[in-house]
Every structure is written in C-alpha cells, then in structure tokens.
Design a protein around this nucleic acid. Structure first.
Lengths: 195, 195
DNA sequence: ACGCCGTGTTCGTCAAGTCGAACGAGGAGA
DNA sequence: TCTCCTCGTTCGACTTGACGAACACGGCGT
C-alpha cells in the first residue's frame, strides 16, 4: 500500500479515518445487539474480515463497507463521518483549479458546499497585536478562511495554523477559536457556514 | 472478491455504485481540468490505479478513494453519492434490530434520519382497485413506506415493489409514483421526508 | 465432569488492488 | 518529416484484502 506521503495539495492530510470507521461499525453493530458473526452473515462477509475491520487493522474496499452499511441500515456516509472535523489547509497555488470555460479566469474549488447549508461572507482585517478570540458558535458551524493579504494565525484552540496570502483553511466553528494578524494590513475573507 | 450473494436483509441490493463512483471521479477531475496523471500525482496514486478506477473496473479501497477526495477538495461522501436514489426494501423480520435496553420491546432501525431533515407521518389505507397516483414532490423528498396490513404495490414509475405486512421500502418522492392496495383493508404508515 | 452452542480472534491460502514501467495516440514546434 | 512532450491505457510483479477453517474463551444444560 504505502501512501504515507502526503497529498501535495493539502496540509493536515486528514488521512482516512480507519480508526473512526472501525469504531463506527462496531458502535452501530452493538447498538443493534448484533453479534459480529451475525452482521458478517447479513452483509455477506466473513467473520474474519469484519473482525479485522473492527479492530482497526486493514483498509476495507468500497464493496465491503457498502455491504456493511446496507446490512446495518445506515447511509454509507455515516460510516466514514469523522466526529470532529479536523483543520484542513490548502496552500496557495495548490488548490485543484475549477474549469473556467476557456475564459481568462481561474477558479479553484476550496470546499464544495454541503447541500442545505447556508454560507455568510465576511471580510476581516487585522493588525499585529492581541489575538481576536471568538467563542464557540452553534454546533455544525464551519468556518472557512482565505487570506487575501498579510499573515494570519487562526484556528481552534490548540490547532491554530499559520496562513499566508492565498492560503485557505477551514475548521469547526463550534469550538473556541482565534484569529491573530502577524503583519500590518492583514486581511482575509471569512465564510461562516451553518447547517 | 465475489460478493454476488445479496445481503439477506435487503432486496434491491443497492450494490456499491462502482460505476457511479467512477463517473463521479472523472467528472470532478475534468471539471477542474486536471489530467489523469496530475490528479494521480496529487493524490499519491499511480496513474494505472486511477485509470482502472475511472474505467469502472475494480473496487477501490477506502484509502484510495479518500486520497482522491482530498486531492479533489470534495467531501468523501460526494464521490459515493448515487445521483438517483434507488428503491430499498427491508423485508419483515430482516431488519437490524435496535437495542431495547432489556425491555420487552423490539425496535428496528429502518432508515437513519439524515441530519436536518424533517419527517411527516401519515397513515394510509386502501382497498383493491385503481392505483393511487402521486405526482412528483419537491426535489430531495424521500418517501418511506411501512406496511401494517394487507398488501401493497408501491414505488416510483416503473420501479414498483410488492410489500406485505411488516415490509419496508423507501424511494424518491420527487418522481411520479403510485400506491396500489392488493388486499382489502390494506394499511401502511407513510413517512414523507423533506430535506 | 462432559458436550454443545455462542461469542470473537488468528492462521494460511487465494484473489484482487496497487504500483511502476512500457506502450500507442495525439499535438506543438522546428 | 522528425522530435519532444503529455495524454491515457495496458502489462507483469508485488502487496494486501477477503475468505474459510481452526482456534480459545465463556455460558448453559445434562
């Protein structure tokens, strides 16, 4: 396998949460009071495969995970959801560009909008000094930050990242977080996303 | 691999949409005007792996798909979404039971509620005769039907399934669909889900 | 004490996913 | 035309996921 090398486009690689998947499967299974063998039978898998999967070892195929999702009666995405969204950073110039219809423009998709979500736009400017502290917003809130000028350190408590012009980061807004400008005339676009 | 045997709990097995995944990856990639090799490089995959994946052959691992989702900047679930939700049937007695806290009750989870969705409950009764035609509702609507008595044929145009007492089916409500009672005194619970 | 289920784990084997390299097809430029 | 580059595909070799069987553990009835 060997895919320890990060994808060059993204810091905080957000590796496949195999551990989280394992826990999710076991949690959903025990919630239904199903034995490992019984779930394996219903999903058409072998006990050994399911055992390894739940122990966190291995890297299941889509087919395998899908069979489990069907047998458990949960949507597929439920098994691969990460309970706490990690910080995701896209460095300037490393975003996947979006097609621009052969027009003299370039566009980059930083974050696909989840269906049913509302996004408000803000422009923030700051000067070096004390950090701007923001309290936790309502659960499900996600903040997107795209630096336009200067230099920032931003993110949730203890997980701040440093961003330069063009850098992008998104992080959960339902935990305490801060913004700190490191250079004079720092500015950034802030997108608040509510679900 | 060989998992052609259906999971015993569900008709319309809703097999892993490998074809849909393949198309989704290719669509997202071409939208960004990325070459196959470039995306493979960013995702840390080999060109051959990505080529096979996009051609519909194979059954990628979670790690592989995850790397692609990160490199494309889309949420993981986006790649495994089925554009048109198929009909899903759970036969009576084959649902995964939900824990009942050692009480003398049994509960079965037929469909986990998507976050942010609203669900209205209806009781429908019918006698054998003409089909009850329902027009398409607003997009995103999903209908859940649990038969309590008699016998029904229900579902979207051309994809109707026959259901007996205790049987459950869910299908998209944003396409024309019908309900037809086959026995006297037929009844069913209908759950309309709006996102 | 036994045997008989049930649980979940570990083992060896086979099939399949992944990789790197080589391949043919198509353009751009000299 | 020839060359060079990039596109995406196909090939063999390696790695690894999935399977089936055997395993240890625990509860229950005889």
């Amino acid at each position: 396998m060997e895919r320890t090398d990060e994808a060059p486009t993204v810091d905080a690689p957000q590796g496949p949460p195999l551990r989280a998947i394992a826990d999710a499967v076991r949690r959903e299974r025990t919630r239904r009071e199903l034995s490992l063998g019984e779930l394996a039978r219903r999903a058409g898998l072998s006990k050994s495969t399911l055992s390894q999967l739940e122990s966190g070892a291995g890297n299941p195929s889509v087919e395998t995970l899908w069979a489990l999702a069907v047998a458990l009666g949960v949507p597929f995405a439920r098994l691969v959801e990460t309970p706490a969204q990690p910080v995701r950073v896209v460095r300037f110039g490393h975003a996947a560009p979006l097609t621009s219809e052969s027009a003299p423009f370039t566009s980059a998709l930083l974050s696909a909008c989840p269906p049913g979500a509302r996004r408000d736009l803000h422009l923030v400017t700051g000067e070096p000094g004390a950090a701007r502290e923001a309290h936790a917003h309502i659960p499900g809130t996600v903040e997107h930050m795209l630096v336009t000028a200067g230099r920032w350190v931003a993110g949730p408590e203890g997980e701040q990242v440093e961003l330069g012009p063009g850098d992008y980061a998104c992080f959960p807004g339902d935990r305490p977080h801060t913004y700190t400008a490191l250079a004079a005339g720092s500015a950034a676009m802030l997108v608040m996303e509510y679900t």
